[in-house]
Design a protein around this nucleic acid. Sequence first.
DNA 1: CTGAAAGCGCTTACAG
DNA 2: CTGAAAGCGCTTACAG
Lengths: 343, 343
Amino acid sequence: MSTEPEIPANRAATLTDVAKLAGVSVATASKAINGRDEVRAATRKKVLEAAELLSFAPNALARGLLGGRTGTVGLLTSDLEGRFSIPILMGAEDAFGAGQVSVFLCDARGDAIRERYHVRALLSRRVDGLIVVGSRTDSRAPLAGNIPVPVVYVYAPSADPDDISITVDNVGGGRLAIEHLIAYGRRNIAHITGEAGFQAARDRAEGAVAALADAGLTMIGGKPYFGSWDETWGRAAAHIVVERHPEVDAIFCGSDQIARGVLETLRDLGRDVPGSISVIGFDNWEAITAHSRPRLSSIDMNLEHLGAVAGRRLFAAIDGDDPPISEQFPGRVVMRDSTAPLG
Amino acid sequence: MSTEPEIPANRAATLTDVAKLAGVSVATASKAINGRDEVRAATRKKVLEAAELLSFAPNALARGLLGGRTGTVGLLTSDLEGRFSIPILMGAEDAFGAGQVSVFLCDARGDAIRERYHVRALLSRRVDGLIVVGSRTDSRAPLAGNIPVPVVYVYAPSADPDDISITVDNVGGGRLAIEHLIAYGRRNIAHITGEAGFQAARDRAEGAVAALADAGLTMIGGKPYFGSWDETWGRAAAHIVVERHPEVDAIFCGSDQIARGVLETLRDLGRDVPGSISVIGFDNWEAITAHSRPRLSSIDMNLEHLGAVAGRRLFAAIDGDDPPISEQFPGRVVMRDSTAPLG
DNA sequence: CTGAAAGCGCTTACAG
DNA sequence: CTGAAAGCGCTTACAG
């Protein structure tokens, strides 16, 4: 006679198995396992031991079917490739993991059809809520159709102001960069940035202009140099700026990649960074900032935090707590070696 | 009297609702919707119209509870930050999306405890299978415990040879790089790479040494220069190599970041790239390769494809088709401007 | 404190 | 071809 519990080989243990082994009803077993207090301590102990012995793991599908929560959410991204989605996704995943929630990942790849398809699938799986992660800060069309669960938009806000959107304060980010440079005594500041078609570029520039105005200054060249987000543009634009405005003593760049290009040109030109010209980037993309010469100061938009907040706001909305509202979060200056006090 | 169908406001339509509206039994409605052929065409049409009218979406939880498939898989990553996981994840997500499968994303953050926790959660949700994505090519301990569903390991192979592991052929990648340089007439080739503690570094070096030997050549310096994976090391190592071995006419780098550093030093030294010295990187990381001076040739390990294959292999395993086996995939040379035929 | 019963939304033999 | 019934694994009133 074996002392092994009777586990029908090829099958995960069910609550019925546990109840049988513990000598109680399934109802009681359920209560014991779920920590209800209408259960005698000794009974609970018996049940818990049986569950342990059978490696019982409650079937989440059955639980979810009962109508309450499923403990799942959908994370809808439009672009996994873009590096902005990843930290946000990590932050959200983290917030959810702590709350015993599992997350479905769906990449719509920027395609509205795919997005709709994914939303349907997620709803048929009865997710408790949805997080929509954008890859640009431009506002996006709200999810199509009637969505019966709470939705939180992150990074890219929904065009509908009644939706909950958690975003980054790019105007503030532009301000932060300029204020940092001004605090270091810089007065002749240029701004080289990405495509004007991006809200992010326009917002950062707006913040920069405003911060300069507050200090009674104007931008070198009269306005931002819009171009593209890459190093090649950074190199080209730096040439232009230094040639036309030799008095320039600081350059605020709309991305770290642009800043890398700027740094290279200044090096080619034999200009001293940070002494003669200070340079600050945007995004704080470690791979780009950490090993440049000199190491690049930058604005960090705390994307992982943004994701975590979005996760928590979604929870709140699911719980029906005081309805969360849209929020914008500031970034922070990360000082490295490319910015320093003037001479 | 309204012509609207009777949809109890706040509730998703159920199969019962559809059946009622269509005037058939739920059994028949189920068959009609699932495309069974024991259903009269006219009946099917009635049911489908009713479903359409009610925006009926079958409850995947109920379906899954019936014991068959749930149509879900778990994607277990150890490190979302690392950029290797992302393309793999995209490939897998893509393969699954096409197959009507939803994927749970879990980031264990390199922690075995978290991993175990996530596996439990996924099993309680009755996933049909698991994909485990590593962030290094070093082999990893197989998933702990008794896992009742198929598992496919990607990028980082399982230490258990009986497990299914889909990996990149780094030895072959090292070969590819050297053969490319040799084809361009280079004979004095150095290898600057990352930490020797990484299997990836050792494998690529092994392939490089073997390819050189096949051509009757030896590595400049007698062996690879192991260091770290970043630009700073690339810059330092390039100095050493050029100083000690002025005859060097090509450098194979273990990562694109190292290669960027090498490129910078060669530029500082006034050496002509690719004419005098050709440089090839590894990873084909667009952000790094596309805007360097000159643009960087590199080895691409087709990570997205790797993820897609892993997804398909998992399907096969779930379907119980001929059991999939471990496989290794070759990379490919991506030519840009940092390699060229010898003068 | 414990248990029998109903029910969540579906699918699947099994009769008719 | 159609439908009544059982059942997937759980939870939740409701009796006892």
